[in-house]
Amino acid sequence: MTEYKLVVVGAGGVGKSALTIQLIQNHFVDEYDPTIEDSYRKQVVIDGETCLLDILDTAGQEEYSAMRDQYMRTGEGFLCVFAINNTKSFEDIHHYREQIKRVKDSEDVPMVLVGNKCDLPSRTVDTKQAQDLARSYGIPFIETSAKTRQGVDDAFYTLVREIRKHKEKMSKDGKKKKKKSKTKCVIM
């Protein structure tokens, strides 16, 4: 069974824990209790493949930012979460993405942009803004509501699919490099 290491990042209060708990335990946590770091595991079937999701729910508070490099190193894919009623959390996505790329030393890291709290009427981040940002990053965008469960499975499952595509691409690139290195030079 394939294991996928997913990391949920975003500013404090955007609903990272609520999304994760909704996926794992099928219930909505409405009281806000700032996370330092929590880890969850769940076995699911995605596109006919049974897999184990190892999900790291991270601290959004700035005082825990020193811990970010460590979990970013171990993560295979990242859910970059903002709240649709919090423009600052949307603007912060850029910083999370840049930090992930720096730590992973790669421009090509599996990510999904997630606009959470889409059940709320007080939207300050337009869907088109988020779609445009995701398009500019070359990553999928999904709106979710941890409260109603809308888009929750889709967000995590899409990230797994992005990781699969990335692994497939990397193995193809690896095979191309191996083929090239088999060419021999004969000096007579």
Score class of each variant (00 low, 15 high):
residue 27 H to E: 10
residue 64 Y to F: 11
residue 57 D to Y: 01
residue 56 L to G: 05
residue 20 T to D: 06
residue 56 L to S: 04
residue 9 V to M: 12
residue 42 K to Q: 11
residue 11 A to M: 14
residue 26 N to F: 06
residue 62 E to N: 09
residue 63 E to R: 09
residue 54 D to M: 06
residue 45 V to F: 09
residue 49 E to L: 04
residue 13 G to N: 11
residue 21 I to M: 13
residue 40 Y to L: 01
residue 7 V to R: 15
residue 46 I to N: 13
residue 3 E to D: 14
residue 60 G to Y: 02
residue 42 K to P: 04
residue 38 D to F: 00
residue 35 T to Y: 00
residue 57 D to N: 01
residue 39 S to E: 08
residue 35 T to H: 01
residue 54 D to C: 06
residue 13 G to D: 12
residue 34 P to I: 04
residue 2 T to L: 09
residue 7 V to F: 06
residue 6 L to Q: 02
residue 6 L to C: 08
residue 34 P to E: 07
residue 45 V to N: 13
residue 35 T to G: 01
residue 63 E to F: 05
residue 40 Y to T: 01
residue 44 V to A: 13
residue 5 K to P: 08
residue 42 K to I: 09
residue 27 H to T: 09
residue 59 A to K: 02
residue 35 T to R: 02
residue 19 L to G: 12
residue 62 E to D: 11
residue 6 L to R: 02
residue 24 I to M: 14
residue 15 G to F: 00
residue 6 L to Y: 05
residue 53 L to I: 15
residue 2 T to D: 15
residue 18 A to W: 03
residue 42 K to W: 06
residue 61 Q to A: 15
residue 29 V to R: 10
residue 25 Q to S: 10
residue 55 I to K: 02
residue 52 L to G: 14
residue 31 E to T: 13
residue 46 I to E: 10
residue 43 Q to G: 11
residue 5 K to I: 02
residue 44 V to W: 07
residue 37 E to M: 05
residue 41 R to C: 07
residue 53 L to H: 07
residue 27 H to L: 13
residue 13 G to I: 11
residue 2 T to S: 14
residue 31 E to C: 14
residue 23 L to H: 15
residue 4 Y to C: 13
residue 10 G to P: 00
residue 21 I to P: 01
residue 35 T to Q: 01
residue 3 E to F: 08
residue 55 I to H: 06
residue 49 E to S: 11
residue 41 R to E: 06
residue 63 E to I: 04
residue 58 T to L: 03
residue 45 V to S: 14
residue 51 C to K: 10
residue 15 G to T: 00
residue 43 Q to T: 11
residue 58 T to E: 11
residue 4 Y to M: 14
residue 25 Q to L: 07
residue 40 Y to E: 02
residue 54 D to H: 10
residue 17 S to P: 00
residue 44 V to D: 13
residue 19 L to M: 12
residue 49 E to D: 11
residue 22 Q to S: 10
residue 30 D to F: 11
residue 9 V to T: 05
residue 8 V to H: 02
residue 60 G to V: 02
residue 22 Q to E: 11
residue 26 N to C: 08
residue 36 I to Q: 00
residue 38 D to E: 01
residue 55 I to P: 03
residue 58 T to N: 02
residue 43 Q to A: 11
residue 8 V to Y: 02
residue 50 T to D: 12
residue 21 I to W: 05
residue 52 L to F: 13
residue 15 G to W: 00
residue 47 D to Y: 06
residue 58 T to V: 07
residue 38 D to Y: 03
residue 40 Y to I: 01
residue 23 L to C: 14
residue 8 V to Q: 04
residue 26 N to I: 05
residue 8 V to S: 04
residue 30 D to R: 14
residue 53 L to P: 07
residue 29 V to F: 10
residue 28 F to V: 05
residue 27 H to P: 03
residue 56 L to V: 09
residue 24 I to F: 08
residue 16 K to R: 03
residue 47 D to N: 10
residue 14 V to K: 07
residue 61 Q to L: 10
residue 23 L to I: 10
residue 63 E to S: 08
residue 64 Y to N: 06
residue 18 A to R: 05
residue 41 R to P: 02
residue 61 Q to F: 06
residue 9 V to H: 05
residue 43 Q to H: 10
residue 52 L to T: 15
residue 21 I to K: 09
residue 26 N to M: 07
residue 7 V to L: 06
residue 20 T to G: 05
residue 15 G to Y: 01
residue 44 V to G: 14
residue 59 A to M: 04
residue 64 Y to S: 06
residue 64 Y to E: 06
residue 38 D to S: 01
residue 63 E to W: 04
residue 36 I to C: 02
residue 58 T to A: 06
residue 57 D to T: 00
residue 10 G to D: 00
residue 54 D to T: 15
residue 15 G to E: 00
residue 30 D to V: 10
residue 26 N to T: 09
residue 30 D to W: 10
residue 43 Q to I: 08
residue 40 Y to Q: 00
residue 53 L to K: 06
residue 50 T to V: 11
residue 32 Y to G: 03
residue 41 R to D: 03
residue 31 E to F: 15
residue 10 G to K: 01
residue 7 V to P: 02
residue 23 L to V: 11
residue 27 H to Q: 14
residue 23 L to A: 15
residue 33 D to T: 04
residue 61 Q to M: 11
residue 11 A to Q: 09
residue 47 D to P: 08
residue 57 D to V: 02
residue 31 E to H: 14
residue 34 P to N: 04
residue 14 V to G: 11
residue 50 T to N: 13
residue 54 D to I: 05
residue 41 R to A: 08
residue 45 V to I: 12
residue 61 Q to N: 14
residue 52 L to W: 14
residue 56 L to W: 04
residue 53 L to V: 15
residue 53 L to F: 11
residue 64 Y to A: 05
residue 20 T to F: 00
residue 17 S to K: 01
residue 33 D to E: 06
residue 2 T to H: 14
residue 56 L to F: 03
residue 5 K to V: 02
residue 52 L to M: 15
residue 37 E to W: 03
residue 19 L to Y: 07
residue 21 I to D: 09
residue 59 A to V: 01
residue 52 L to V: 15
residue 54 D to W: 06
residue 5 K to H: 07
residue 20 T to Q: 03
residue 52 L to K: 15
residue 7 V to W: 10
residue 60 G to T: 01
residue 38 D to R: 01
residue 28 F to C: 06
residue 34 P to H: 03
residue 27 H to Y: 13
residue 42 K to A: 08
residue 36 I to S: 02
residue 62 E to T: 09
residue 31 E to L: 13
residue 46 I to C: 11
residue 31 E to S: 15
residue 48 G to T: 09
residue 25 Q to G: 10
residue 42 K to T: 09
residue 30 D to L: 11
residue 54 D to F: 05
residue 4 Y to L: 14
residue 50 T to K: 12
residue 23 L to R: 15
residue 48 G to M: 06
residue 57 D to P: 01
residue 17 S to R: 01
residue 14 V to A: 12
residue 49 E to Y: 06
residue 57 D to C: 02
residue 3 E to H: 15
residue 42 K to C: 07
residue 10 G to Q: 03
residue 62 E to L: 07
residue 22 Q to V: 04
residue 18 A to H: 05
residue 29 V to H: 13
residue 25 Q to T: 07
residue 33 D to G: 04
residue 36 I to D: 01
residue 17 S to I: 02
residue 60 G to R: 02
residue 59 A to D: 03
residue 60 G to K: 02
residue 2 T to A: 14
residue 39 S to V: 06
residue 42 K to L: 08
residue 18 A to Q: 13
residue 25 Q to P: 02
residue 2 T to K: 15
residue 32 Y to Q: 04
residue 29 V to T: 12
residue 34 P to M: 07
residue 19 L to D: 11
residue 17 S to W: 00
residue 22 Q to L: 04
residue 49 E to A: 10
residue 26 N to S: 12
residue 38 D to W: 00
residue 46 I to W: 08
residue 40 Y to P: 00
residue 44 V to N: 13
residue 51 C to D: 09
residue 21 I to S: 15
residue 64 Y to P: 05
residue 59 A to L: 00
residue 53 L to D: 03
residue 44 V to Y: 13
residue 34 P to V: 05
residue 63 E to G: 08
residue 23 L to G: 15
residue 49 E to W: 05
residue 49 E to F: 06
residue 49 E to P: 08
residue 19 L to T: 13
residue 58 T to I: 05
residue 63 E to C: 08
residue 48 G to L: 05
residue 46 I to G: 10
residue 51 C to L: 11
residue 6 L to H: 02
residue 12 G to C: 10
residue 52 L to S: 15
residue 13 G to E: 13
residue 10 G to A: 07
residue 14 V to L: 11
residue 35 T to F: 00
residue 60 G to P: 03
residue 21 I to C: 15
residue 13 G to H: 13
residue 39 S to L: 15
residue 48 G to F: 05
residue 22 Q to Y: 05
residue 16 K to P: 00
residue 2 T to M: 12
residue 25 Q to R: 08
residue 24 I to D: 05
residue 14 V to I: 13
residue 22 Q to I: 03
residue 62 E to Q: 09
residue 51 C to W: 13
residue 15 G to A: 00
residue 56 L to R: 06
residue 58 T to G: 05
residue 6 L to M: 13
residue 50 T to M: 11
residue 53 L to N: 09
residue 7 V to T: 13
residue 31 E to Y: 14
residue 16 K to N: 04
residue 25 Q to F: 04
residue 49 E to N: 10
residue 55 I to E: 00
residue 50 T to P: 13
residue 52 L to I: 15
residue 41 R to T: 06
residue 41 R to S: 07
residue 16 K to F: 00
residue 31 E to D: 13
residue 61 Q to G: 12
residue 9 V to N: 05
residue 46 I to P: 08
residue 30 D to G: 12
residue 34 P to F: 05
residue 33 D to N: 05
residue 12 G to H: 07
residue 42 K to S: 10
residue 18 A to E: 03
residue 17 S to L: 00
residue 11 A to I: 15
residue 16 K to Q: 01
residue 47 D to V: 05
residue 7 V to G: 04
residue 42 K to H: 07
residue 32 Y to L: 05
residue 42 K to N: 10
residue 47 D to R: 09
residue 61 Q to H: 13
residue 24 I to Y: 04
residue 5 K to E: 06
residue 60 G to W: 02
residue 31 E to K: 15
residue 46 I to H: 10
residue 30 D to P: 14
residue 28 F to H: 06
residue 63 E to P: 09
residue 41 R to K: 08
residue 36 I to W: 03
residue 28 F to K: 03
residue 20 T to P: 03
residue 32 Y to M: 04
residue 2 T to Y: 10
residue 42 K to D: 08
residue 9 V to Y: 06
residue 50 T to R: 12
residue 33 D to L: 03
residue 51 C to P: 13
residue 10 G to L: 00
residue 4 Y to E: 11
residue 29 V to M: 12
residue 54 D to A: 07
residue 16 K to M: 03
residue 19 L to V: 10
residue 36 I to L: 06
residue 64 Y to V: 05
residue 47 D to W: 05
residue 7 V to S: 08
residue 25 Q to D: 08
residue 62 E to R: 07
residue 27 H to G: 13
residue 43 Q to C: 08
residue 64 Y to G: 05
residue 15 G to L: 00
residue 12 G to I: 07
residue 53 L to Y: 09
residue 21 I to N: 15
residue 29 V to C: 13
residue 11 A to R: 06
residue 3 E to K: 14
residue 37 E to V: 04
residue 35 T to L: 01
residue 16 K to S: 10
residue 49 E to V: 10
residue 6 L to V: 11
residue 39 S to W: 05
residue 50 T to C: 09
residue 20 T to C: 06
residue 41 R to W: 05
residue 9 V to K: 03
residue 12 G to R: 06
residue 49 E to K: 11
